[in-house]
Design a protein around this nucleic acid. Structure first.
Lengths: 330, 330
DNA sequence: ATGAAAGCGCTAACAT
DNA sequence: ATGTTAGCGCTTTCAT
C-alpha cells in the first residue's frame, strides 16, 4: 500500500506538495498537480484514514449500539442510520448489546478506544439517571434512539409512546372492548412507563378502572408472547382483547390463541406496537401502532452529526408521531 | 482524553514504562505497575486505538458490505457476523450496497482507506470473474457470504443452493405437483444459476420436461412477488404450484393468490427459500428451504479471521446444508 | 509555489 | 527495570 512519501519520492518533490495536491488545497502548479494525480493513480494510492484520524482527531465513524440488530424493528432503524451516515460521509461500527448492561458498557469502551466521533444508543439499557453521568464522562456526543433516557438533559429521537398506546387503547374501547389485557415489554424503561401511562389514560378517559392484574411483562420474543397468552387464557375464561407491547409478542399471542381453536378477532382481539415489515402478512393481519422506524434512525443520525459538527450543547428531543394501523386482528 | 504521556509525566517516568505496564509486557516493577495502573484509572485513560492501529498496522475491524441489512434474512446473517467478531475482539463497519455495484465498490474503497483487516461480502454484486481481480488488488483477506463468486479460487460460505432447490422441487413433485412455476430472483448470480439447476435436475429426475415459460425473475420484495404472481395468474388458468426464490417473494405471491379468493394450498401450493424468522407465522405458514442464516455469518467470520491471522492462501469453500421445512402452504 | 519541521499517540528495537 | 530513539502516514505552521 503506497503512501504520500512514495509518490513524493517517485516525483522528487516534497510530501507536502503531494498532500496539498491530493486534497485540493491549492498551492500547487497545474503541471505538478497532474503529475501527482497520475502517479497516485499508478501507484494505486489510497489515503490512510487511520493516519488522518490520528492527526485530525476525527474518525468520521459513528458507534451504534443496539440491543439486537437482527430483530426486524431494529434492523430497519439501523438501515436508517447507515444510509444517513453514508450520505454524510460517515461509517458506522455496529455493536449488539443483547440487552446486557455490562456488554453495552464494554462495547462503548471499545468504541471510545477507536475514537468514534459520536455514539448512537438504540434501545439502550443505560436509561437511568446515573447512567448519564457515565455517558457524559466519555466526552462524546451521543443520542438515544427508540428508548429515551430518564434524564431530561440528553438528546433523543423516539416515537410518542404515550400517544401511541393511548390511541390504540382508545380505539379498542371505542370499538367495543371494555376489558383489555396488556402484555408489555419486561424492561421497565421510560418507554415502557410512557406506554403504560397511555394505556391508563385511555381507560381513565372512558371511566374504566385500571386493573393491574391485566398487565404483564415479557421479553420481546414469539415464545414469550405465546407463553404469556397461554397463561392469561389458562387463568381466565373471560379474555376479550389483548394489547401487546410489540408485534413480536403479538405474533406469539396470536399463535397461542389460534392453537386453542379460538378465532381472531371474533373470540379475541389482538393489537400490538411497532408495525414491523411483515405485520400485514401474518396469520391474521395485525392491528398495530406504526413507529417511523427508518425515520428514527435517519433523524437520529442527522441530529448526532449536527452535534458532532456544531458542538453546541442545546438539548434536542425529537418525538415522532406514531400512526394507528387497523387491520384484521381487531 | 489522557495519553500515555500524561500518565508518564504525572509519575515522572518514561512513556515506555507506562506502555509496557498497561499492556502487561513485563519489565516493570510491581511497585510502579500499581502506581501506573492507579494513575491511569484516575486520569480515566483509554488507549488510543487509532494510534495503535497506525503503529501496528492492524485495526481489529472487519468491513461488512451487504445488499440491504434491513431485510430479515440479511439481518440474521449480520448478527452472526457481529457476534463472532465481538467474541474474537473485532468490530464491524457495516455498509449497505442497495444492490448497486458502484456503491459497493465505493464502500469498499472507503473501508480500505480505514484500513480494515478483512472484508466480508454478503450477497455481493461483485461475483463475476473480473471482479475478483479488483478484490485481489486490494491486498486484503475477503470472504463471500450467501452468494458465491463465479471464480473458484476465492473463499465463500453459502448454503447448497442446488441441493436446496432440488429437495424442494423433488418434494413438490413427489407430493403431486407436475407443473411448477418458479419465481426466482432477478440477478443472475451463481446462486441463482445453482437454484435453477436444482429445479431442472428435479424435473429431469422425474421425467418432466423443462419449460422456460414457467420461470420468472423479480426483485426480492413483497410487491414484486405479488406482481409476478398476478401476471402468472392473469396469463394462465392452469396454475398449480409456485416455487419462489425467497420467502419475501413468497409472501407477495401468497398475497396475490389470497386476494383473488383462491386458497393455499387447496388451489395453489406455494413454496419458497430462506426460512426467515416469520415464515411460520404468515397468512399461511410457509413451506420453505431453511438456510442456516446465523451460521453463514458466524462461520464466514471465523473463516475470515483465520485468514487474517494465518495469512495462508488456501481456498475454503464452506457449503452448508439447507433443510426442507414443510408447513401448511403446500 | 514549494518545502522543512514538528507532532498526533503509540510501540519495536535497542540502549543503559 | 527503565529509558531513548525512531517512525507508522498524515497535516498544520511557518519558512523560503
Amino acid at each position: 500500500m503506497s503512501t504520500l512519501k512514495d509518490i513524493a519520492q517517485e516525483l522528487g518533490i516534497s510530501v507536502m506538495a503531494v498532500s496539498k495536491a491530493l486534497n485540493g488545497k491549492g498551492g500547487v502548479s497545474a503541471d505538478t498537480l497532474v503529475r501527482i494525480r497520475n502517479t497516485a493513480e499508478r501507484l494505486n494510492y489510497r489515503p490512510n484514514a487511520v493516519a488522518k484520524s490520528l492527526r485530525l482527531n476525527q474518525t468520521r465513524t459513528i458507534g451504534v449500539v443496539v440491543s439486537d440488530s437482527s430483530l426486524s424493528f431494529f434492523a430497519a432503524v439501523v438501515k436508517g442510520i447507515e444510509d444517513t451516515a453514508f450520505l454524510n460521509g460517515y461509517n458506522i461500527i455496529l455493536c449488539n448489546t443483547d440487552q446486557d448492561c455490562a456488554k453495552e458498557r464494554q462495547s462503548i469502551q471499545v468504541l471510545l478506544s477507536k475514537r468514534i466521533d459520536g455514539l448512537i444508543l438504540a434501545a439502550s439499557m443505560l436509561t437511568r439517571k446515573d447512567d448519564v453521568e457515565f455517558l457524559r464522562s466519555l466526552g462524546l456526543p451521543f443520542v438515544f434512539l427508540i428508548r429515551r433516557s430518564e434524564s431530561e438533559d440528553v438528546d433523543w429521537v423516539i416515537n410518542d409512546n404515550m400517544l401511541g398506546a393511548y390511541q390504540m387503547v382508545n380505539y379498542l374501547i371505542m370499538s367495543g372492548s371494555q376489558k383489555i389485557h396488556f402484555i408489555n415489554l419486561y424492561v421497565e424503561t421510560p418507554s415502557w412507563k410512557d406506554r403504560l401511562a397511555g394505556y391508563r389514560k385511555a381507560l381513565d378517559d372512558h371511566g374504566i378502572p385500571y386493573d393491574p392484574d391485566l398487565v404483564f411483562k415479557v421479553r420481546p420474543t414469539i415464545e414469550d408472547g405465546q407463553m404469556a397468552m397461554n397463561k392469561i387464557l389458562d387463568g381466565n375464561a373471560d379474555v376479550n382483547t389483548v394489547f401487546c407491547g410489540c408485534d413480536v409478542i403479538g405474533i406469539g399471542a396470536m399463535e397461542a390463541i389460534i392453537q386453542r381453536g379460538l378465532r381472531i378477532p371474533e373470540n379475541i382481539r389482538v393489537a400490538a406496537y411497532d408495525d414491523i415489515d411483515f405485520a400485514a402478512y401474518l396469520r391474521v393481519p395485525l392491528t398495530t401502532v406504526r413507529q417511523p422506524k427508518y425515520a428514527i434512525g435517519s433523524k437520529g443520525t442527522e441530529l448526532l452529526i449536527e452535534k458532532i459538527t456544531r458542538r453546541s450543547d442545546e438539548v434536542h428531543h425529537l418525538v415522532l408521531t406514531p400512526e394507528l394501523v387497523i387491520r384484521m386482528s381487531t
